[in-house]
Computed example of a mutant assay.
Amino acid sequence: MATAPTRGKPTQTVSPLTLLLWQETLLSWGIPLFLIGVIAVVALLGAFGQIAQPTGVAILGCLLLLLVGFSLFRTVLTGTVEPRLKALTWGLGFAWIAITWAQLYFAVFVGQEMVSGFVSADGGGIVLPLGAQGTVYDLVVEGSFTTAAGEVGREAGYRLLLEKDGQKVQELDGVFSEHWARQRLGRRGSTTSRRLHNHVLHRLLSPGEGPYQLSIVRIDPQLTPTLHVTLYRDTYPAKTFWLLSVLLLIGAYVGELLHAEKEAPLVLVTASALAFVLTFRNLGVPPHGYQDVVGAVMIAAIAGPLGGWLFRLIADAVSKGLFPHQKKRLTKNR
């Protein structure tokens, strides 16, 4: 059976303008909304205990950083960009994600748990097997308040003694707190919320390899006479990450100069992302929870732009002094 020839019949083609509109919609709305949806799903799974807390916290933090990084570099890479400049910007983007994700990973997964147990005021201690001199450990101390009459705020402290062969090595002091605050519910209702801080993190530097005895010297009577302690070996390469963070800020500053016509806030957003991962590590104690992610986001939203602004002022002054003519040429379109 013969078929009719198709020569001369109109064929459907997609215009370049339509493709451009679809691409713009995908970059502006599609991918960000998809990431926000995944963030919401992970948060719900974590809230209902369907995902391990360290895994959920790490995934949630990485997705937040990916969303911020994508929104930032999408502005820079869209439109007309020189091929050489685009390659450099892609490299900066990958470095941005890698450095922030790595810091978050090491902050969530703090290292190997060496020992976990209890120390009590009646003389019961615990042995800490410390490694070679200079090895860094994280010692997490957890306590509980005794039952109080009414909703009253209180603080209570303790002192631990680290010794070896009966010789005093170091004393560790900490304070727990419990506060109550009124919180509004709707227009007229209110409720009382409890704010409890019953974990303290101590950085412990090993004075030498061997077993050490940890015991209670003093504990406030408002606390139960037993404290729970957990020793982690600190694997966080702080000096390396500080160096990488400074280099990343310098790269963001150079990127701002190269993309001056787009006015992308590379320095401010990069400083905010670094403030988030640094704050998260020092906010709370291991194992970090979802509330630490929320707290780090709130602090980074304020401290990050301020730190980025100060860094830009310093970088402007330094670059103006070192490369006055180059600086003027790069910023003439800003």
Results as ranks from 00 to 15, higher is better:
193 S>K: 11
259 H>F: 12
271 A>N: 04
279 T>E: 08
278 L>P: 07
216 I>C: 04
205 L>S: 15
208 G>S: 05
227 L>Q: 04
241 F>N: 05
244 L>C: 06
246 V>F: 09
235 T>K: 06
231 L>S: 00
219 I>W: 15
197 H>C: 13
256 E>S: 08
270 T>C: 12
188 R>Y: 10
247 L>K: 03
224 T>I: 15
222 Q>K: 15
276 F>L: 12
203 R>T: 13
184 R>E: 11
277 V>H: 00
192 T>D: 09
252 A>D: 05
213 Q>W: 13
272 S>T: 11
276 F>Q: 06
240 T>D: 11
179 H>G: 12
198 N>T: 15
277 V>K: 00
221 P>M: 08
201 L>M: 09
262 K>Q: 03
185 L>M: 06
228 H>F: 14
247 L>Q: 05
238 A>K: 13
194 R>I: 02
243 L>I: 14
278 L>Y: 13
260 A>F: 05
200 V>T: 15
261 E>N: 08
229 V>L: 01
259 H>L: 09
255 G>Q: 00
270 T>L: 06
183 Q>V: 14
204 L>Q: 09
194 R>N: 11
241 F>Q: 03
189 G>T: 01
251 G>N: 04
210 G>R: 11
223 L>R: 04
191 T>K: 13
241 F>D: 06
212 Y>T: 01
244 L>R: 01
259 H>G: 06
227 L>W: 03
243 L>M: 10
177 S>I: 11
267 V>C: 03
195 R>V: 11
265 P>S: 02
263 E>W: 10
190 S>D: 07
253 Y>F: 11
192 T>N: 11
194 R>F: 02
251 G>D: 02
261 E>A: 08
213 Q>F: 12
264 A>W: 05
259 H>R: 02
263 E>F: 11
186 G>E: 03
244 L>E: 00
252 A>R: 04
251 G>C: 00
215 S>G: 05
184 R>Y: 09
187 R>L: 10
266 L>S: 07
188 R>T: 14
229 V>D: 00
269 V>Y: 02
188 R>N: 14
